[in-house]
Amino acid sequence: MSSPNDITDLLVDWNNGDELALEKLLPLVERELHRLAHSYMRRENPDHTLQTTALINETYLRLVDQKKVRWQNRAHFFGIAAQIMRRILLNYARDQNRQKRGGRAIHVSLSEAVVMPAEKDRELISLNDALNRLEALDERKAKVVELRYFGGLSVEEVAEVLKVSPITVMRDWQFAKAWLAREMQNGS
């Protein structure tokens, strides 16, 4: 059902402006991330950060039909992966936040529960809001944050995706971080 072909087609469709394609794409990518995240977590390796880029790479390799999507689209994929990651995390944060506020005592057994570290859910939601405001002000800076934070991309990779110099990315990133931190402090 979720052969690389379908996913590749969905990616292409979404890229062409078909928002419905994203809705179909999300669960497929999510499932793959789930599977990989499990095997990564199981290794009980404290250096998870070392593996994040590998995770994205592996997801890409599994999901996308390499013959159909050319190498230069890799940067493009990272851009998409970052957006997907943002959506997935936000969905979790909202669910969890809603449950906390609603106080609905649904008993979920531990193995099924999605546990977001304490307070991270609220922070993530407020980050997302602030990021939307930044986007209205300066689209590129918001993009830099999305790629770097949600996509786990290095400065150089971001530069490649956005076709600007690494130094510009670094400056954007510093400024955006300060701006978002201020917004989040004021907003909460």
Binding site: H38, H48, T52, S111, V115
Partner: peptide
């Protein structure tokens, strides 16, 4: 890094 956060979140949820 959000990817790390996602790993934690997804890694704990069911497969």
């Amino acid at each position: 890094n959000a990817v790390t956060l996602a790993l934690e979140v997804l890694g704990k949820s069911s497969n």
